[in-house]
Nucleic acid binder design. Sequence first.
DNA 1: GATGAATGAGCCTTCATTCAT
DNA 2: GATGAATGAAGGCTCATTCAT
Lengths: 192, 192, 192, 192
Amino acid sequence: MTSHVKDRRQELLQAAARLFREKGFAKTTVRDISRAVGLQSGSLFHHFATKEDILYGLMVDVIELNTARLQRAFDEADSAASRVLALIRAELEAIHGETRDAMTVLVFEWRQLTEGRREDVLNLRDRYEALWLRALEGLAAEGRTAVESFTLRRLLVGAISWTVNWYKPTGSMDLDTLAEQVLTLALKNPEA
Amino acid sequence: MTSHVKDRRQELLQAAARLFREKGFAKTTVRDISRAVGLQSGSLFHHFATKEDILYGLMVDVIELNTARLQRAFDEADSAASRVLALIRAELEAIHGETRDAMTVLVFEWRQLTEGRREDVLNLRDRYEALWLRALEGLAAEGRTAVESFTLRRLLVGAISWTVNWYKPTGSMDLDTLAEQVLTLALKNPEA
Amino acid sequence: MTSHVKDRRQELLQAAARLFREKGFAKTTVRDISRAVGLQSGSLFHHFATKEDILYGLMVDVIELNTARLQRAFDEADSAASRVLALIRAELEAIHGETRDAMTVLVFEWRQLTEGRREDVLNLRDRYEALWLRALEGLAAEGRTAVESFTLRRLLVGAISWTVNWYKPTGSMDLDTLAEQVLTLALKNPEA
Amino acid sequence: MTSHVKDRRQELLQAAARLFREKGFAKTTVRDISRAVGLQSGSLFHHFATKEDILYGLMVDVIELNTARLQRAFDEADSAASRVLALIRAELEAIHGETRDAMTVLVFEWRQLTEGRREDVLNLRDRYEALWLRALEGLAAEGRTAVESFTLRRLLVGAISWTVNWYKPTGSMDLDTLAEQVLTLALKNPEA
DNA sequence: GATGAATGAGCCTTCATTCAT
DNA sequence: GATGAATGAAGGCTCATTCAT
């Protein structure tokens, strides 16, 4: 694949992500996406066979990108608590940083995928979630969590994902502070 | 308004809520909804002027119903902690009990509303959220929360709403236990 | 089904048959058909779910109509030769009379049907062909055919169907004369 | 024109003939044809300016090829009856032998040509049909046909062309036998 | 209130054809 | 001659909404 082809693909995926986040998958037309990158409607066909393929493509890309990011955060930490904090921070960054559009879409438009695709995405998230579970169990082993790890992760992913609905990185609270607040929720006795 | 008219309206709203949750607002057709209550497609428009009105109608109803429920939970509690627990429990019940369909729709299809309607819904939630804030501040006054109340509420609403994606009331954890786990997140020192 | 609904269906089927014959199934658009009966493009949907359904519908109708006609011709004849002549005549009438459009379409656009539909049509033709075979075997029993009945029928159906490509009922040869010529082909010794 | 250029042209024509027969002209895409000979879609247009040109090209080729074949059959025969038999045999071979794909397409997709092209094809067939007419009139001169030659030819071409729909050369009847059966139809008194 | 045929705008997708490389 | 991305006009179909009955 030559690089300008990859570029066009990335360009489309990014434009689509933004539109899907702003208007929703259903209300975004193929023409909207084409126009956003300066193509005619039919030309999308060379890059993605269907509109759903675009949705799927951006979900896969963002999961893979952020799994790698999470893995890095996991590897670089030197204590159980700092590891969990790093994961929280990484996830918040995914949601509010460069991959924000795609992450939002992943959360809100996941149901638009057809059955099979839905499972594929779920499977891709497994490695991602496995990292989280290991990190939380490290904290649990130190007796610092008050909730069982699996449940804790589910509650945390909710709290973190939901920030998309209210948190503005440009506001008074920076991302590091927010990450610490979330960590506080996870810890049994935060001040200890 | 005679009562059988109200019934028909309720019937439509419930059928729509179920369909919107299962298939999403965009993929649910007016015909789907009509068929679900034994009407022909055109007849639905004697009850709701537009498809969006149905979405809006069920959101308003479910917010009002649950605000009343929340108010009751608030009033009946006799301590700050038991009050927060009661609110958590009430919100979880809204999400997993009889109003489950409408609540899920409220969370996931909120963006489908047009601008003005979106604000209306937001305003309706104000009273609801005010109750929450008072309850959390009661707990904060006792020095038992580790996170500032507004942020805490936002994180909790995320954690609670997200349960729609993973929690099954028929599974091994009952709703009371789940509510306690959520409370644990909110408390600074759960064992105290 | 009220009668004006049936009428609209018939109207559509006839308009479609004419267009399919003139332009071919593939080159006829749903909009062409709608316009021909004074409808907007989307309104076809109330009568036929897909364009193929129209094709299938008219084929089924024309087969059933002509099977009944063939049966009548079969029943009314009083000798083996006159029976075969009557069938030839009936088939020519189907091709050049009122059902001409649909018959032509049946012959030339049969391949446009999807697999399953193709079989359905074939099955419908069975009863029709069974009549033919019985009639030809009546003639064979009298020793008046020179070719085995099954093969004879296949050759005759070709000769008859092909008339669509050259015979004009308004020309110098009338349908009865043409029918006799075809019978001549089938007979071993025409003058006997 | 160098010979490998001619080869590429032939290759395309044959691939197209097969596809047109199998799927129909309308449902065969330019990409299908290109792919079948290992070209990319755009490259096909170095060989044929339009998709219709391909259809026209293969029709012209097959007519010319078979006219030559018919001429040979005509020339080699030594009696009126054997001449007609030879023509039948030659036409059946065209339909069931190597030129089968193109012949089938000639019969079934003739209407897909634009007006002018349709006439051109008709004109090409004139020489072909003239041979047939002379042969049949030879037989008529001997008093052995029961139907006037022009009509007879039209009926025979139908019977023969239609074999494409039912006759399998690999079945129990070989091509010679089939040819004889067809001749039987044409003769007034076959046993004579 | 109910019906359901009709509307008509719009959607996703297809595909013959062009053209810069 | 070959490539393949791009074009752009259609095409089949969907569906919220209207309205005469």
